[in-house]
Nucleic acid binder design. Structure first.
Lengths: 362, 362
DNA sequence: GTGAAAGCGCTAACAG
DNA sequence: CTGTTAGCGCTTTCAC
């Protein structure tokens, strides 16, 4: 895929500067040993003349290490992952690393394949972002592959569930959803529906479980058929909302297990003129979605920061056993869940405005 | 950053299979020459036993070519770019390539730096997505770097403006904005404002120019102080809208040069209770933004497809001079520009509903 | 078919 | 400090 003939080599540079290969190497690509300034300048000039660019691949094999890190996500187009990617890339830049990114399209097998590819590339580190599934077999295979990666000298970190003996940023989906349920019942809601995402996706499963748990603690029941599964996407939320309505359940409030589904749900409600009748809450607090109307109540996850932390963690030397770091979200109540009028007064801090600092963009 | 000691080498595999290095290589990593099935099986078994993964870097230096392509974007968190990335990654996957991505943070210098890094990596191809600026110097340096990249055997393609003698997907910003202006005046609007984006950003400049041109053709004036520049972001649009209002100009319709700015503008209008008074149009048709209210009139750009096309173009063998392929957008009229009631009846096809096929997600 | 050996472009001892 | 000389891990002639 692309011949690399034309490329100038270090030998060309050395010859032109009239020095040895070794000296040229030391002058250009740094080294412990020092080079006389005069010579160094001559070499650098030669390199400039020839427009020399070191062959990173060759350096990698000679040095036995790479300057590339890998990032495996489920879908780069999903803002959840592009934010994480942004964070990781920021840290990579700060450390002079290039990031090779792979979008697995939510197929566990592809994910494993990419980890393997990254192992072949001898990536220094690799961060795997995205929910695990309940597919024990896929999990085991991923574990094997990650293990092989680490044994070959690389370092890996997962973002999501703690399911493998590997460094992990454990997203507190369960407690986040539980807190959300608590706040929502605090607003006076008593009947809920859940747009639950794909059945086997742990992030979705955990959020559902946590939400149910929160309701239970508040003494609110969640009937089985008030839970509708669907794709983890805008259209999935749209369809699930319609399905829930079709089931004839009247709910005051719907919890969509992520923001994009919530947006789909609101769209569905709107076409039926119900957007102010049924409250909707999401999860993630996706920046790009902050301007939907009504503003979404959600659980904010510091996505960019998660990406940064993940890469930093894995770059930091570490000795011994896997580290698990918990990432907790924060409930943000907004207009999409105005609360039930008569009863229960809204708790303190219930109405939080949209953040509009100059920092948040997109 | 990460020792690569543990890694199993092909030599280990060869030894275990009791064959020569050469044979092991042929058996595992393919070759013109054939290997007796029996031997091949033995080698493959050995590789499996040892959990061997070929060192892609070493292969690259030996073969003189890589399996990585580079993608340089302005900001991976911006849906405009994450969609392009998704497209590029799709075709990369189809061709067994890994993509190294770099997010330049809208700094032309960083962009150049990354192209250089990609050259060092000996990337087979590289796609540079994002608007050029009016900085002639930066453009020249990018040109030099890209040229060096191509001379060293790689292939490059730009997405944006035709400003360099390099393969380019030329986005028809100007004509898109012109068409938009035509349609908008067709709806009866007569006074416009423009939230124009950063001054030096060619994409923004072209869209402004095209829009102005469209208005002119329709005999509508666009006063200089009805044009407000600002960041190419949601907050930039928000601020610019406020500024436009502060200037005391009463406009019927505002054109924000991209969707994220348009969303910011709508948010600003909403806080003032003006969202149904001032019409707003954007550009790009960002998927994630399709559910804002009112639904955004915009110029749809096939972003994912652009990413695909770019990489395909550059992967396809080509002899000779640079190719320029035009990408034209399509005006999509939606609720954010309902049209002016009394006069001018809406033209045919004016009201296009939101696409809601199961395909569109996020 | 298979193996020995010469690279690929660069780094890193090791001597001077 | 600088040059010589082994490698790094793999591919690919070139003989057998």
């Amino acid at each position: 895929m692309g011949a690399k003939r034309g490329a100038v080599t270090l030998e060309d540079v050395a010859r032109r500067a009239g020095v040895s290969l070794a000296t040229a190497s030391r002058a250009i690509n740094g080294s412990a040993r020092k080079v006389r300034p005069e010579i160094r300048e001559r070499v650098e000039q030669a390199a400039r003349d020839l427009d020399y660019a070191a062959n990173a691949q060759a350096q990698a094999v000679a040095r036995g290490r790479t300057d590339v890190v890998g990032l495996v996500v489920q879908d780069i187009e999903d803002p959840y992952f592009s934010s994480i990617a942004a964070g990781a890339m920021r840290v990579a830049e700060a450390n002079g690393l290039m990031v090779c990114i792979a979008s697995a399209g939510r197929r566990p097998d592809k994910e494993i394949e990419y980890v393997a590819a990254l192992r072949r590339m001898r990536a220094a580190a690799i961060v795997i972002a995205g929910s695990r599934t309940d597919d024990r077999d896929a999990l085991a295979r991923l574990g094997t592959e990650v293990d092989a990666f680490e044994r070959s000298g690389g370092r890996a970190v997962l973002i999501g569930q703690r399911r493998l003996p590997v460094d992990t940023l454990v997203v507190a989906n369960r407690s986040g959803a539980r807190d959300l349920a608590t706040r929502l019942t605090g607003l006076g809601y008593r009947s809920f529906g859940v747009l639950a995402g794909p059945r086997g996706l742990l992030t979705a499963v955990d959020r559902l479980a946590g939400f149910a748990e929160g309701l239970r603690k508040a003494g609110v029941a969640l009937s089985r058929d008030a839970v509708v599964h669907g794709e983890f996407t805008r259209d999935g939320g749209h369809a699930a909302m319609l399905e829930l309505l079709a089931r004839g359940r009247s709910v005051e409030c719907v919890f969509a297990v992520n923001d994009v589904m919530a947006v789909g749900a609101i769209a569905a409600l709107r076409t039926l003129g119900l957007e102010r009748t049924v409250a909707v809450a999401g999860f993630d607090d996706i920046t790009t979605l902050r301007d939907v109307i009504p503003a979404l109540t959600t659980v904010r996850l510091p996505l960019v920061e998660i990406g940064e932390t993940a890469l930093e963690m894995v770059l930091r030397e570490h000795s011994g056993r896997p580290r698990y770091q918990r990432i907790v979200g924060e409930v943000v109540l907004r207009e999409s869940t105005p609360g039930v009028r008569p009863a229960h007064p809204a708790p303190v801090g219930a109405a939080e405005p949209l953040p509009t600092g100059p920092a948040s963009s997109t």
